[in-house]
Amino acid sequence: MASILSTRNIIKTFGGLVAINDFSLEIPEGSISSVIGPNGAGKTTFFNCVTGFYKVDAGMILFNGAPIQNQRTDIVTRLGISRTYQNIRLFANMSAIENILVGQHPRLKTFWGEAIWKSKRFQEEEAVALEEARRLIKFVGLQGLGDQVARNLPYGAQRRLEIARALASQPKLLLLDEPTAGMNPNETGEMTHFIKHLRDELGITILLIEHDMRVVMGISDQVTVLDYGSKIAEGKPKDIQNNPRVIEAYLGRGAASGLKSGKAK
């Protein structure tokens, strides 16, 4: 399998703090990969570097073989990388449908002024976009909630809507930042299933940050472990579970329970 995303020796520092240190990673196309690690290990920083929100200090990030490091965020999105956020960041005062319509932005091509005289092209494009938004609402199981203002949606629905918004740009690579955070076991199970479904149905490569080891071990093809900004392990879920350095990194912080529960499964 070819790599859809590969990072080569990237370094990101904030003042004196090295957030990501010489980190290299290959994400095979069509895979579900996870990045795990203790709090503050640099996982979300890594996402921010990939999406161009942060500029890396050194190293390369290749997407489908082309360098994207230090590109503007909007351009990275247009190339086909889309993401969700750890603490949900929807457009709170816009309806669910409108959130998804914004997500489709990179695909809308008509000149903005055409909206004034409602050119045929504009009307067609809008109709297609609206149809697609309705389809996505159904796809993530939110039918009937499309006209709700995003901030009024229940928590689980907000997570789903955020994924739908990310899907709207038809990404090739989807970055999910803790998609099951704050969910009960039932919802977590559904979300896990849903993520798998995304890959199997839509063929999107998925990279996720996750704390819930059951999710990670259950669906990942490949797991990468970050600690203090450096990669300490990489491989199949099974190998990671038995890797002494990983156990040490977690145990050292007294957070072994997550790993154990993963093992128990």
Partner: peptide, 16 residues
């Protein structure tokens, strides 16, 4: 409106 709600996310949605 997306920009008004959250500038960073709007940019991440591909908005210039």
């Amino acid at each position: 409106m997306a920009m008004r709600e959250d500038e960073d996310v709007a940019e991440a949605m591909g908005i210039n």
